[in-house]
C-alpha cells in the first residue's frame, strides 16, 4: 500500500510517499481502508517532540471502510463505514490502510461523507471537552479566541447548540 512515512534522518522532506506492506489486523483490531483523513496540530507537535508512531505513519482522524476484522472483533463487520481518532492507538491514517483496536472506532452515519466524517473526531471532541471543562451553563457568555480553525469552528457551534 502507499503511505506517508516519517523519515527523521531525511535532511529535506521528512514525510515521504512510499510503498509499504499492507498491514493485517491483530485479533482485537479492524483493518480500515482509508478514504479520508485530517491533518491535526497533534501530528506536527508529535513530530517536533520526537514522538514517532511505531510504523512511522502519522494521521489521527480517519474515515474509511472495514476491510478485514480480527478474530476477537465483536462490534464491526467487513464493509462497515467507520470513523475514529487513532491518536491513542498509534496513529497511521496517512496511508491506504490502517489497523486499529476496535475500541477506537464508531460507525459513520450514512448521510455524512467520508471527508466530512474525517474532519470531525479530534477537533470536535476537543471543543466539546473544553466547553465541559469550562462548565458552561445556558445563557452564559462565552468568548472564543482563535475561532477560525478546526477546534474553533466546532466550539462556536457546540457552545450555541440547543
Amino acid at each position: 500500500m502507499k503511505a506517508i512515512i516519517y523519515d527523521k534522518e531525511s535532511k529535506e522532506e521528512k514525510l515521504i510517499l512510499q510503498e509499504v506492506q499492507k498491514p493485517l489486523p491483530s485479533e482485537n483490531e479492524i483493518l480500515v481502508k482509508v478514504h479520508s483523513t485530517a491533518v491535526n496540530a497533534a501530528d506536527y507537535r508529535s513530530m517536533k517532540m520526537g514522538l514517532i508512531p511505531k510504523n512511522k505513519i502519522f494521521g489521527a482522524d480517519v474515515a474509511g471502510t472495514v476491510e478485514v476484522i480480527g478474530e476477537n472483533v465483536k462490534n464491526f463487520s467487513v464493509g462497515d463505514e467507520v470513523v475514529g481518532d487513532l491518536s491513542a492507538h498509534g496513529f497511521g491514517g496517512f496511508a491506504q490502510y490502517v489497523p486499529a483496536n476496535e475500541s477506537a472506532w464508531v460507525l459513520k452515519p450514512q448521510s455524512i461523507s467520508f471527508d466530512m466524517a474525517a474532519s470531525v473526531p479530534m477537533s470536535s471532541v476537543t471543543a466539546l471537552q473544553a466547553l465541559r471543562l469550562g462548565n458552561v451553563q445556558p445563557g452564559q457568555k462565552v468568548l472564543i479566541c482563535g475561532s477560525g480553525g478546526g477546534v474553533g469552528t466546532f466550539a462556536v457551534q457546540l457552545a450555541k447548540s440547543l
Partner: peptide
C-alpha cells in the same frame, strides 16, 4: 450549552 458566543477572529 445554549451559550451567548462572542468570537475573536
Amino acid at each position: 450549552f445554549n451559550a451567548e458566543v462572542t468570537v475573536v477572529c
